[in-house]
Amino acid sequence: MRRRLVSAAVVAVALSGISVPAAFAAGVSGQDETFLKGAHQGNLAEIAAGEDASKNATSACVKKVGAVLVRDHTKLDADVKTLAGKVDVTLPASPTAEQEKELAAVRAEAGSTAYDTAWLTAQETAHRKTLALIDQELEDGQNAEVVAAARTARPVVAMHLEMVRGGTCHEAEDAGTVGAGTGGHLAAADDSPATVGMVGTVTGGGLIAAGGAAWLLRTRRRPAGEN
């Protein structure tokens, strides 16, 4: 009996080893792994496209947007690489073949006025694909930190998409202000007791001072001896 159980256990372990190698190799699900790899390659592609724009774009706007892509995707990728190391996912060293082909096609327009439009159009497509990759992870991801990485990237990618929407360039300001309140309730909470106190004190004090001054003036004006 025991021998059968042992051999059954050995077979079970062997089978699990064969059937789910990916799950044992990495600490995360297939979906999480797909996202990390895709996010990394997307970041590499955006950095390459941004660097190309700074060389070959004809308008200042596209050059600026290119610089923003390089800056932001470098930051996002630093966190993706750290996380991949943490959960044992090996990242590819370069963008996908398709991404490289797309950049090559845009590069081919370098030196002509068609470059900027080609660049912007390619970027709009690329960012929509990245949003789809992110949304897939938000829907099906299992590892809390990988899902958080997707959530972290989403507003940045969405902001980039706005800059290239419709194949036209829309420059955006760097983050710099925080408008954090619209209700006016804080002002009301601060003001009322102080205002009431002020009004009371000033009125009371004013009445006393006015009364005193009036009496003093009256006595001064009357000749001595009268009451």
Binding site: G197, M198, V199, G200, A209, G212
Partner: peptide, 30 residues
């Protein structure tokens, strides 16, 4: 009469002081 005069002077000064204090406190809390 002198005593009353002094008292009223004192009250007037206090009144003015209260006005000043009230205004200052209010502007500081704001």
């Amino acid at each position: 009469r002198a005593a009353v005069f002094l008292m009223v002077c004192g009250l007037t000064v206090c009144g003015l002081g209260a006005v000043a204090a009230g205004w200052l406190t209010w502007s500081m809390t704001r």
